[in-house]
């Protein structure tokens, strides 16, 4: 259960911070230039952060299937990653991943 005041404080700070980030350059509208290297560095941000969410949620989740050493989530992650690489459908990989996880853990 998330404490109400703790939640509101976090939301308030996220609103201020996110709007500042989104509006920073729009507010100064072209009066400031960013270097090409900094611009390129920004493009690495998803690759730098998203695996740090995906990997622990996969590896540190308690598995349920002894035959695959309790790491069925890892196998499903790899499979859905390969499928997404070719199909590029968020809906499909979420459905496929959850469907497979359900089948593997229930049967």
């Amino acid at each position: 259960m998330i404490n109400g005041n703790y939640f509101l404080l976090n939301v308030f700070l996220m609103v201020v911070g996110t709007l500042t980030i989104r509006g920073s350059f729009i507010a100064v509208s072209g009066k400031m230039k960013i270097s090409d290297k900094t611009r390129e560095l920004f493009t690495y941000i998803p690759a730098a952060i998203l695996p740090a969410f995906i990997v622990p949620a996969t590896f540190f989740h308690q598995g349920q299937i002894a035959e695959v050493f309790g790491k069925e989530r890892f196998l499903i992650l790899v499979l859905t990653g390969i499928v997404f690489y070719f199909v590029r459908s968020t809906l499909l990989i979420i459905g496929l991943g959850l469907g497979l996880l359900y089948l593997v853990t229930q049967f």
Partner: peptide, 8 residues
């Protein structure tokens, strides 16, 4: 697990 999958 839909969260990590959507991040993929």
């Amino acid at each position: 697990y839909a969260v990590p999958l959507s991040f993929v």
